[in-house]
Structure formats: C-alpha cells, structure tokens
Nucleic acid binder design. Sequence first.
RNA 1: GGGCGGUUAGCUCAGGUGGCUAGAGCGCAUCCUUGACAUGGAUGAGGUCGCAGGUUCAAGUCCUGCACCGCCCACCA
Length: 885
Amino acid sequence: MATKTLPTAYDPRQVEMPRYREWERRGYFRAPVDPSRDPFVIMLPLPNVTGELHIGHASTFSVQDVLIRWRRMQGRNALWQPGTDHAGIATQNVVERELAKEGLTLQDLGRERFVERVWAWKRQYGGIIDEQLKRMGFSCDWDRYVFTLDPGYYDAVMEAFVRLYEEGLIYRGTRMVNWCPRDESAISDLEVEHVEVDTELWHVRYLGADGGPGIVIATQRPETILADVAVAVHPEDPRYRALIGSEVLVPISSRRVPVIGDRRVERDFGTGALKITPGHDPLDNEIGADHGLPTLVVLDPKGRMTSDTGPFAGLDRFAARTAVGEELRRLGLVEKVEAYRTSVGTCDRCHAVIEPYISEQWFCDMTAMAARAAEAIRSGRVRFHHERWAKNVLHFLDHIRPWTISRQLWWGHRIPVWQCDACGERTAAKTRPERCPKCGGTVLRQDPDVLDTWFSSGLWPFATLGWPADTPDLRYFYPGDVLVTANEILFLWIARMIMLGLHFMDDVPFTDVYVAPTVMTLDGRRMSKSLGTGIDPLETADGRGYGVDAVRFALISRCSQGQQDLRFSEKMIADVRNFTTKIWNATRFVLLNLDGFDHRTPVPRGAYGLPERWIRSRYARVARAVTVHLEAYEFDRAARVLYDFIWNEYCDWFLEMAKIDLPQRRAAVQHTLWSVLAGTMQLLHPVMPFLTEEVWQHLPHDGESIMISRWPEPDAAWIDDGAEEMMTALMAAVRGHRSQRSELNVPPKERLRVYIRGEERLASLLGDLARYLEWMARAKDPTILPREAGEPSPESPGSRIIAETISADLSIRTEVSDHLVAPARERLNRMLSDLEAESGRIDTRLRDPEYVRRAPAEVIARDRDRAAELAGMREKLRQYLHALA
RNA sequence: GGGCGGUUAGCUCAGGUGGCUAGAGCGCAUCCUUGACAUGGAUGAGGUCGCAGGUUCAAGUCCUGCACCGCCCACCA
C-alpha cells in the first residue's frame, strides 16, 4: 500500500456534508420491511414545524442516533422514523404575527384562506429543522418522512377520534377549563405552566345587608368581585358561624348574596372568609354548584370586562383589577392590601396568564387507558431509564383527569363531528355524512374546533406506519423499541403514546424510554435563545469549526442515567475537538507506518510482543465495556471508556512503543496499529460518525462504509492478564524515572545512566523495559543488573548512583551528579513517609481483632499482601537512603 | 402543600452489591517545539466527599434528621 499523507488537522467542514450525502445516496438510512431481519425502531420525537434545532434536540437526538447506528452495525434492521408536527397553536401564532405585520387579522382572511396561508408558510419555512437534522448526521429514514397533516396521518387522526367517540370516551361538555385569552382557546391541564409571581392580597369588606358590619374577605382578583354570588366561611369558624344564612352586599354592585358555610374554606388563610365566584375560579365553581348558586361571568374570551360591567366594560382584566381596586378604596371598603407571592397558571405556548373559564369543549375520558398504561409500566412492559422517571409517570397516570382535546384554532385536525341544522343531532364520522342519521336533515355543519396537537402526536408510533390499515410496515415495525425524550414531555407525549398505543394497537408502542437530561448553562439556567444563554449546536459545529462530532460527543459523554440536568458550555465542545485532532493525528501516524502492510495477511500469534498483546487485550475489554454500557443506556461510560482508551493507552503508550518496535516486529506492530485503530473507530462511530468514517476510509478495510460494518464482538481470546500486569509494571517504571528526572530538575536533554534490577518473575519484562526507558525517558544505556550482581559504581567522577523502588520486585538506579544527592534524598524520604503512612493504616487495621475476625478472608488477605509488599519497599528505600548518606 | 432528584478538587462530573492510598477532563504551576499531534507532551500542586447523628471490624458508599439548590405535581382565595 502506498504511503498516505493527511493534512495535520482534521477539518470537519470539509468532510461532513459530502459524507452525509454519500450515505444517503447509498441508501444506508433506509429500513425496508425485511422479515428475515430483526427490526430496531426509534420514533423521532417529532419537532415542531416552526422549530429550529436547539441544544435540546441535539442532545436527545444524538442519543437516538447512537442507538440507531449501534444497532444497525449489530445487524438490526434499524428504523428511525422522522417527521414534523404541525404544532397547532405555535404555528398559528407565527402566521398570525406575520399577518399582523401586514395589518391583517384572522377574521380578515377567514378560515379557508388562513389555512392556505399557513400551508404556504409551511412550504417555505417548514423544512429548516429537517436540514439541520441532516447536518447533525442523524441517520433517519427520510424516505418515510411524515408530517402530521399529511392525508394519511390526517385520516388516522380522524379514525382515532371517531372510534373513541363511538366508544363513549370522547364527549362534549360545558365546564370550567383553562382558557388562554391571548390564543382564545382552551388548553389542557398539562399545557398550563405554573409560575411564581408577586401580587397583592386585597382585604375587602362586604357590608351586611341588614346594615351590620358584614364580613371581610381576602382576594387576589378584585375585578372578579362583580361576579360574586356568595361569601363562604368554614361552618365551624366561631368568628363567622353566626353569620351563615345572613346576607351581605357585594361591593360596587350592591347585590345581596348569602353567606354560606363550606368545609373547603381554609380558616387560616386570609380572613377565613372566601368570596364565591363560580364563573372565574375552579374551587368557587364547585362550591357554587354544590350550593345551587348561579354563575355570573364578567370576562369575555379575550380577558376583557364584559359590556354589562358598567364603567369597567371593555377593560382588560389587569386594568380592571386596578380600576376596581380604586373604586373599592373610594367606597372605603378596603381594609388592607398586602404583598403576596403566589403561583399563577400561564399558557406554555404564549405565556399569557390563564383564565379559569367556563366553555363548551370536547373531552376525552382517560381513566381506563391510564390504568392500562400504568399496568404496562408496573409490569415492566415499558421500562424507564432511569427508572425513577417511571414514578413520575405513574403518579400522573394514577391521578389522570379528563383531557380537554378541543382547541379554538383553525390550524390542525378539524374535529370530525357534524351537527344537524334541523334537529341539532351530532354525528362523528371521518367524512361528512350525507344526511342526519336522526332526522334525515341534509344541512350538517362541522364542528369548528381542531384537536389538541398532542392528540395527533400521541398516535405517532403507529399512525406513521399506515394505521388504521393493516400494513406490512405496521406488522413488522410495531411495537418499536426505544423512545428517547426530554423529561418535559413525559406526560404530554410519552404517557399518551403508551395509553393510545395500548388502546388502538393493543400493545405498548415501545419497550424502553430513555429520559435525557435537560441541557443547562454552567450556572444552572435554562438554555434559551431569547435569553441569550443558549448554545447553537450548528453555529458551534460550523461557525467555530469544531464539527458536529465534537458537539455530539460532548453531549453524549455527559448523558448519565438518572441525571436531570446537564450543565454545558461551549468549552466542553472545544475540548472534544481536541480529541478529534488527537484521533486524526494518531491516524496519520499509523498511515505513515503502514508501508507494505496487507491487512489480509494473518500474523502468527507468537509474533506479537508485549505492547501488542497488551493493547489488544485492552481493546478486547474496551469493546466489551462499550457494548455493555450502551445496552444499559450508560452513554457517559461508553464515551469515557473510549476517550480514555484512545488517548491514554493507544496514543500515550502504544504508539510510542510502536515507534520503537516497528523496525523489529514490523508485521505484528502494523497489524496491531491497524486493527485496534479500525476497531476503536467502529466502537466510536455511533457517537462520532463523520470522523470515524473518514479515518476508516483512509485505513485498509473491507466493505464500503464503517456505517454498515459489523459491530466489533469482544474477543475473549485476546484478553491477556499477564501482558496487562507486565505493562502496568513497565509503565510504573517509566513514569517513576520520568518523575525522578522532573523532580530533580534534570535538564531535558541530559541522558542519565540507568540500571534496572528486577525479580525473577519480571525477567521477561526487563529487556523491553530497558529499550523503552531509553526512548521514552531518555535513559542512557539502560542496563539490566543480574540478580547476583553487586551495586554498580558511578562511571563519571562527581556522580552518585541513586536507587529507587518502583515496586516490591522492581527497582531502578540512576546515576546523577553529586549536587542532586540532597534533593534525591528528600524525594526518597517523601516516598518513604508516604509508604509508612499507608503501612500504618493497614497495620492498625490488621491489629484490630474485630477486623480480623469479621472482615472477609479475601479482604484481609489483600491487606496482608499489601503490608508485606510495603514492608519490602520500605526496607529497600531505607537501604537506598542509607547508601546515600 | 405533596413527590422526585442533587450537594465529591477552582469548574463540569465519575465513583453498579460498604474494604479508597477518593479518580477524570478542564483550569492552575513547572518544564519541553525530539518527524502523529503545541487543538500537543512530561511532571506536579489541589479534596476532613453539604452538616449532625446512627448502623458496622470498616461509610463518599447504608439509615435518620437538618441545611441549601433544582425539577415535577397541586383549586389556600
């Protein structure tokens, strides 16, 4: 093979894009149905069509690509199903804002034209994130790309709705829901984010209808006083008991309302008296219903005071709060206003404060589905990694509440229910019925609402595969294997996929859920573009030239099980870039030394020297460890094992020793250089796909791409405890001598005369050690002292021989000039005192009869061995010190 | 108010069943441009493992309590 020369630095920008296109062109990402192979399926958590790649995607998707690439190399038929979500509220908001710039509103366009407009927007901007995913190297099967409003998917959503409706699980009702006045739509409980805010607690007097002092209530929302229908107190509260049954006057409006007793009132909070506003508060709504009270409403869907609120009509709720407050003060009814910290619900899409609001909506009863999903988790049919996340999900499932599935939007899956104009009958059907099944009327109007985006995405694991049709895809790929996600959508999406999968497919959609940590800044804040605290993964990969692999590795190497946060910085990516450079240069070295090498020519086992046997043994262990860690979702460990092996063992030691041994054992060393590097690249490929492919392509190889090469099987035959033990001793000796030189400030260029003395069991090592000391620690003529030989004498005048113990059975003597004797003694004394300290600890332990009686024999034996070893080393050290006196 | 995590070197983190002389990377200090790599190499300094008890021959590792930080759930107005 001809000598190959590579540039001294790896430039990811040169190789990544072309390589990805090459993989795609060769069809490596495709997963066709193939019953002869075992499928492995991951459903990509579908990004919003409005989305752009952020660090959270980069993190969770990198994990998925690691799993997909690894399983694909293991021979599984790996399907990674991509797609995007139409993202109802988010997308509608984006286009609405665009319209606003043109001075237009939704109503100006009307429903049809607006939806067309959103489609146009989608065609123009919707593909950004897909390109970004490709840029990250993710190996999705793009031929199977699905958008949730594609006709097939739309049909599946309709089917699911109609079935649930017919089963009586979907129903319509008027009740208090979470209302977003900004989006003018209901949202579900899960879409409400609670945030702490500083507000005020108003203490307001309601005068007695009989002219008495009445009662003082506490409220955060004076503006809702206009909708009050009662004042409630605890029935056993001595302060107010007597007032129950009397009437008080609602401030401002002076309506007479009753004082009622109800145990749900907290006596300790505020004044212990609660104004009852069934139209604007969930608890009040319940209490009002139980007491047969009417419901008044003073806010409209936009959160403004209604027209019948007199001077307040049309005011926004927050302006109304101030205005009503002022009016109350003017009337002298405000007893006090105190600062108060509480949490309010906000819309997770637009962050407006949520109004509890009474409206007619569609709901889905989740009780039975949740119970089934909970059972699947408890029985282990769905496993969470880390398992603690299962507890969170179970708590959610065990306390499930009806799901508000209708949204007052235009962008989305329109609810397939038709109401007869004539008789009012509602019919659910995937397509418009010809006539009303009840009265035969032919004027049927479709429900104006669309479905919650999460309703459609909950069907993702099977709707993508052709459901409700019984397709080969569905039969082959369902159920899938792993779902990787951030913890924030555990309930919104993961729990619902499990529930809906069990319901419609009669099986769980996946068997394993890996919950990736949330990426945070170093000081623990959320990474956010708007706050300027985010890291843009592609900006870092391309703009800084660190490469996608560095971003991926940096994230993956910090994904440990059970972690909730991942504190991250760009520096971490830069550090990994250095690792890619290291690998690149190791490759250059290998290629520079592969002249005449044919990887198909076998090397007899006996031809390998110690370093080759050692690195092959280490490699075999690493291959096993990486596989084991991936199986356990311990990505940090898998990455760490590879990092340490490549840098600290392969580069720092094996390559250095190869330089020495190549002339003597060319074939064995070449083969080892090549095979260990190639194998390590395979193990690293799932995390760093581009660099490893580039290295692989430069190395001799069979097959066309590392991506479809066979995952290395750990080969126990190469595990060599003896070689590892010898290398450990050898490395200790080299380090010992380097340390001595460094501490004695020996000039770097000065070569020191070195003698080695070792016990019989190290005999095979000493020759190697002598050679390596010469090269790796600048020793001069390293000489092995026969066991029966006496101590060597200095060769140069003004020099002394200084001996150091490396271990109980290995020592090194170094000739240094006289003036280094004092510092050398210091060094030996320090070593001696370290050994004595350790001996002391062990001896104390061994003298404790309780320890000797109760500790396991092997622990004691280990202590005794170590004690003996230490004794030997100390004895030698004392001799050496004595000789220096 | 409930539930779940975290607290180990200046920073970010490892430390599966208790036996550790507590590790890594970055940062820091000193030295080194020797043909893979200065995006590098060598050597070294740096920690009473949040606090207080307890169990044990032995605790970073198990138990209890406390403190601080974080996340999730929740109708105290």
